[in-house]
Design a protein around this nucleic acid. Structure first.
Lengths: 124, 124
DNA sequence: GCTTCATGTAACTACATATGTTACGATTTG
DNA sequence: CAAATCGTAACATATGTAGTTACATGAAGC
């Protein structure tokens, strides 16, 4: 599939697709080919790719929107607040990552298949 | 304490302080007084105010930086992904809120007192 | 009452970040 | 050699948060 086709599916620009797909390629999840008949191809077993793995491949973007503003503040009040929050955030993140590890692309594909069949049935 | 003094402590503008403190006032956690000798005053028992309560008072800002882009997408793939993520996010959020409920301002004040004593000791 | 010191709030500005776009080079295939 | 496609740098745009200015309102002291 070409970046342009993917961009259409996702409602975005081919260059944006390349940026993100490039990260997945670096992680070995997809391959890219240039030139005529080139494009992107999945190179991993869907059942071996978890959401956790995708999160890693995409550079482990920050999970929380709130949180410490400054990791090592001079201010003692800020230090107390940080200390109180750190453990809670770490626990929540660990739980989330555990759940992410349990969901694979194969699971998503199966779920999609059901939804697709359901939509076709609904149309009759 | 005046908004101006608080602003100095926090390294920000008095108006920004008023904006946020206003939410805490609406939640009954602080009171404000205008005019000469006015300013902000804590009106709640520190041991009765949890971080959970503060989060509520501040309008329950979004906790996660990643997550569903669209709650009710037409796209079946997006629906599958959303369905897979929703439970995980809900669990992680519930855990975090549980932990937040366990930490009160009194706890933070106590922790601060220890840090303060420690810093004074270190200076000798 | 008048002055001063506060908050309350609307409107505007500045900045950072994420996303989108353009442009062009590199590579592959026919 | 031409067309198709990725790779990537540079630039543009949009969005949201924080900061700022301005002024109205109210309270205290003289």
């Amino acid at each position: 599939m070409t970046s342009e086709a993917l961009g259409k599916c996702l409602g975005t620009n081919p260059v944006v697709v390349r940026r993100t797909m490039g990260l997945l390629r670096d992680a070995g999840l997809v391959t890219s080919e240039r030139g005529h008949a080139g494009g992107w191809r999945i190179s991993a077993d869907l059942s071996a790719v978890s959401l956790r793995r995708l999160h890693e491949a995409l550079g482990e973007p920050a999970i929380f929107a709130i949180g410490n503003r400054n990791e090592t503040p001079e201010c003692l009040v800020e230090q107390s607040v940080n200390a109180a929050l750190e453990g809670a955030f770490a626990e929540a993140e660990a739980l989330l990552m555990e759940r992410f590890a349990d969901v694979t692309l194969a699971d998503l594909a199966e779920d999609f298949t059901h939804r697709h069949a359901q939509r076709r049935a609904d149309r009759e």
